[in-house]
Design a protein around this nucleic acid. Structure first.
Lengths: 344, 344
DNA sequence: GTCTGTAATTTAATCGATTAACTTCTGGTC
DNA sequence: GACCAGAAGTTAATCGATTAAATTACAGAC
């Protein structure tokens, strides 16, 4: 591969002049410029980004740290980051911690998680990235994270409690409130909840939203209408089975994610009931499965792409010297209405 | 951030000695080593990877080029790459072309696709990556791709026709054959096929496998038993609707992917029929939806993680100077049996 | 013809590492 | 005491760019 020296030699000027032609920041005579450009064309010269990085102390690379690339919202968030980064000249160094493989369900071993995350950050630091976006899945994992001092850092998806940090997240509580309101507005009174894993702070926020909606509507929630699952299909089946056998079964079920809602479908069908005529169902997350069920599942769509956008925007603001005070940004979700609920 | 010079000054030796301590390739006295290590500890010194890359002409970064990070098999393939890369000291520069956004369904504009892909490759070249894995979704896109001369290059998922290239792919034809055999083994005789988009070479391979199985079993396939969809849920609904209204409706439907199979579920239920008692259904790809349907969908699981593994292994072989003759590797798929088929 | 200002170009230092080649030191052998 | 080998350490070139500072060239003013 050609270097700037060879271009200089070929076009009979010094390396400085070649550099000036490339940067356009200094005057160069037309004659010299032409010869340089011709040499560049001829040799297919591309400046060595590594040398440039060393000299300029800037890599134009941002590190994107994810706990598991296969995690539901992650590809879309990363895609949002890429979209926002387009034309910016930055590239993405992806650090995939593979936490779900290594420590899946070991919720208690928080310090282990934190350790893996911090080594991931250290690796990105070593690579001299200009900034870091950490796509965090759980609020509680975020707290022990050591933010590097000199590298702009943004949390995406989950939220950091630290006041000096910037996070971009979505509104769990209010979305749960809204979708519960939707059921209430359809005249449902017996609305049951299948919660996610009790470890998850998202589950607690969604629970709070549900409770607020029920309270506001003056609807009492009997304890047997709230059951905890583990986010997986099968727990949806189990918990729905239990609820449908109640003396007063619910007329609507709010499952805290779509696979558990799909589990409800199975349970409801096995009980010989119909959706939505006998039981309405809503989910959360708007995974692909929601549009593949029959009837289509009404659910909450997270602003994943936008989380990626805004997180990136914030990061670029700091990288380009535009001031941006630390802040926690909470984006609204939207409800995707399909055919799984009906007026009572 | 501390540099090697500062460490040298702090410990009263030359930079060369510090470097020798770090690399361990030259003799250093215990006394000097101790002082250097203490200085490193003290200042939290980490060698500048950029400077090292420049000097050594090696970045320890591999470029992973994907057409769309949200594409079904992509996250898992990337995860496989990461897994194989663990402990290797290589990091991943992710180049997400976002093709599905930009050129979705514009199948005819192959040259456009090729152009975007080649610019993606050029960007990775500019970044001086040591090697490239291109996770390609369609065989036909692969052909115009310009492989950089000096950078080891591996195709993953789709297959390159070029003899001098190495690709790691999976066995479409045989998997379709096997899952059709499964239905035939359950005594089905009327087995219909809902194909993917006619543009896709994967669809043609899967069709060939289906035909081979039917031929071998001496089963004639009436033309109305083969209908083309577009990989999406709704085309599954439509095509299944059409088939179920036939004078002799099929007793089993093979949908070429899981969303279309889910569409069959909807159509079958709306016709008042049961799965699998009245109609058996099988899919392909083993997406999450397959385990969220009721009954669970029997389908073909692609070896995505392993594709990532092997592609990475091949690449590392070449990067570390182990010889690896160019070859096209085709991995087998496995059938995931759930409850959507039954003996006739 | 000299002076001056500006445009064009070059020189050389610099970023932070690696490493070949060289120097210095130490101890052993005859 | 001369010689040598090997260990320990240093010097300085190098990777490929950027850029402040110096130099050169030249046109216009007087």
């Amino acid at each position: 591969m050609a270097t700037i020296k060879e271009i200089a030699a070929l076009s009979g000027v010094s390396v400085a002049t070649v550099s000036h032609v490339l940067s356009g920041k200094k005057n160069v005579s037309d004659a010299a410029r032409d010869r340089v450009l011709r040499a560049i064309e001829l040799t297919n010269y591309k400046p060595n980004a590594i040398a440039k990085s060393l000299r300029m102390n800037k890599t134009h690379i941002i590190g994107v740290l994810v706990e598991d690339i296969r995690g539901l919202p992650v590809p879309e968030i990363v895609d949002g980051i890429n979209q926002q980064l387009e034309e910016s000249g930055y590239q993405v160094l992806l650090s995939n911690l593979r936490l779900l493989h290594k420590l899946y369900n070991q919720y208690e071993q928080l310090s282990q998680h934190t350790h893996v995350i911090n080594s991931g950050i250290a690796l990105l630091e070593d690579a001299r990235v200009d900034g870091i976006i950490y796509v965090a899945m759980h609020d509680r994992r975020v707290d022990g994270v050591r933010q590097p001092v000199n590298i702009p850092f943004v949390f995406a998806f989950a939220q950091s409690g630290e006041p000096e940090s910037v996070s971009v997240t979505y509104d769990n509580e209010n979305s749960a409130y809204e979708i519960t309101r939707l059921l209430i507005g359809q005249n449902h009174r017996q609305i049951a909840l299948i919660a996610g894993h009790a470890y998850s702070s998202a589950a607690h926020l969604r629970l709070a939203g549900y409770r607020r909606a029920m309270d506001e509507a003056g609807l009492r929630v009997p304890p047997e209408y709230i059951r905890w699952g583990d986010w997986e299909y099968h727990s949806g089946v189990e918990q729905a089975d239990a609820m449908l056998s109640l003396a007063v079964p619910p007329t609507a079920i709010f499952a805290m994610n779509d696979p558990m809602a799909a589990g409800c479908y199975a349970s409801i069908m096995r009980h010989g009931l119909r959706i939505p005529e006998d039981v309405s169902v809503v989910g959360f997350d708007n995974q692909e499965v929601a549009s593949c069920l029959f009837p289509g599942l009404t659910t909450v769509a997270l602003p994943n792409r936008e989380i990626g956008h805004i997180a990136t925007e914030r990061l670029l603001d700091r990288l380009e010297g535009r001031t941006a005070e630390p802040a926690s940004i909470t984006l609204p979700c939207s409800i995707v209405r399909r055919g799984s609920t009906m007026q009572r």
